Amino acid sequence: MPVRRGHVAPQNTFLDTIIRKFEGQSRKFIIANARVENCAVIYCNDGFCELCGYSRAEVMQRPCTCDFLHGPRTQRRAAAQIAQALLGAEERKVEIAFYRKDGSCFLCLVDVVPVKNEDGAVIMFILNFEVVMEKDMVGSPAHDTNHRGPPTSWLAPGRAKTFRLKLPALLALTARESSVRSGGAGGAGAPGAVVVDVDLTPAAPSSESLALDEVTAMDNHVAGLGPAEERRALVGPGSPPRSAPGQLPSPRAHSLNPDASGSSCSLARTRSRESCASVRRASSADDIEAMRAGVLPPPPRHASTGAMHPLRSGLLNSTSDSDLVRYRTISKIPQITLNFVDLKGDPFLASPTSDREIIAPKIKERTHNVTEKVTQVLSLGADVLPEYKLQAPRIHRWTILHYSPFKAVWDWLILLLVIYTAVFTPYSAAFLLKETEEGPPATECGYACQPLAVVDLIVDIMFIVDILINFRTTYVNANEEVVSHPGRIAVHYFKGWFLIDMVAAIPFDLLI
């Protein structure tokens, strides 16, 4: 008679799926529990143990900040960024110097990925580790590398530091407007667009060049630039800015003055950032001319202004700041037409079709709590990747769950009947059967004279019903998954307890 339990259901295979997918890609990662103190490590794979030199037993239950890997060259700011990422709910990448158990130093890129439950609360953290440099290539500990984003994938490793954006290309926007319009339909740009040429040739750093990471940081200074100062900065030398009595002219307006920039070969870094931020506020060169004239017309309804409409929906549905990093990277690809469009465009503009998908598509409701890094690593669709929660398995109709209350009560009843059979069957065979043979035949009273025979008949009927119930009862397979398919249940029961239950259900007393 089957006594099969499996009270692990309803099970959740999400954690096993993450481990299996990460292991298949030869990654070095740990999984931490966000619900406990210090976000203790609950799993670390073999790749991480080989990377740091510690065994799994030495890593388990330690804080996922990996303070046991810190050393003299470990930056405090990087460690603080990892700790801050564990307090938030967004994906974050941090470069930090770690030390192995043998004392060797290596520069590592740590990717902190939160995993949320159905309520939107962070319950786990996945920390992925990628070695960037070994100890002989690690720089000085005073050099802070965590304020910069990861290198873009479309640049060669040897040319990542030679990417320079020439400031004269930004200063000569109005001069290039006529050349853009003359391109017409034969050019790649839309009317009114501004073409910015980027020099990728390796050259020595000069005062006129600005690194790509500095251009990325310009967006942080746009908020500090007032509207009046932006307007004066875009007017140009024809209309000098008016300053109040006793007030000095704005240095932001002076930063885009061609006369002032041409007199000296070098520009201050602050002026460069502010000038680029001011130019980015204009949607095209037409807006710059309109600002000089004193009238700013409404933005025209053409394809170039609607190019950012799908980007707005993608940004609203993005799951991490990696989408913004990807957008900034692609927006700086050289030799393309940049349409400086305000994100607050007309909502009635139709979304044009684009061959290049900048932001990841909208994630469906079932995966809105899973970050983009987890979705990318697992390579699963929205119909396959579940949320991290207890999910009731989908069972067929008329199927009994093996952990249901009805099955528990039924098993206790069958257990009592088995005990009765084990006690009274030998007793009936030894004593009652002998008395029946010696006594007179009682054929007239039937079952009324033999109450134990009636009980034995009921017990046999219950055993037959138990066999039928076992054909529709779920079970737990070797992978700790609840199986509810009727065919698989029948095959599993035939290979197991079916023969024993059938022999126990045969009414031998009635056959004798």
Rank of each mutant, 00 (worst) to 15 (best):
V374F: 11
P63G: 08
R164E: 06
A9M: 14
R328G: 14
R164I: 12
I30A: 01
A282I: 11
K28H: 11
A382H: 12
I336E: 07
C265L: 08
A253E: 15
A382V: 06
N12P: 12
R269A: 13
R312E: 06
A277D: 06
P150Q: 14
C52F: 13
M133F: 10
G53D: 01
S284P: 09
N117E: 07
D213A: 13
D111G: 08
V41Q: 01
F68G: 01
V196R: 01
S354I: 04
D287I: 07
P141Y: 06
A9C: 09
R56L: 01
P150K: 13
R269I: 14
T152Y: 15
L69K: 01
E91M: 09
L316A: 11
R176V: 03
V370H: 03
G224T: 05
G306T: 05
A211E: 08
G187C: 05
R62I: 01
S104Y: 03
L173V: 08
K21S: 13
M291C: 04
E50D: 07
H147E: 08
V41L: 04
Q61H: 09
G238M: 08
F68I: 01
N45E: 01
A290M: 15
D197T: 01
C265T: 09
C276N: 14
D119T: 09
R271A: 12
S275L: 05
G345T: 14
T174A: 14
S331C: 13
Q376E: 12
V279Y: 13
V113Y: 11
C64D: 01
Q247Y: 14
G183R: 08
P114E: 01
G184D: 14
S153T: 15
S354R: 05
D119A: 06
H309I: 09
A160T: 05
T13P: 08
I30Y: 01
Q11A: 15
T270R: 14
A188Q: 11
L212W: 09
V325K: 12
D119Y: 06
A228R: 09
P334I: 01
G103I: 01
L385H: 09
D136H: 03
V198C: 11
R292W: 07
V113W: 15
I363S: 08
D102A: 01
G186Y: 11
E289K: 02
R366T: 14
A228G: 07
V115Q: 14
N117S: 07
S178A: 14
V195Y: 05
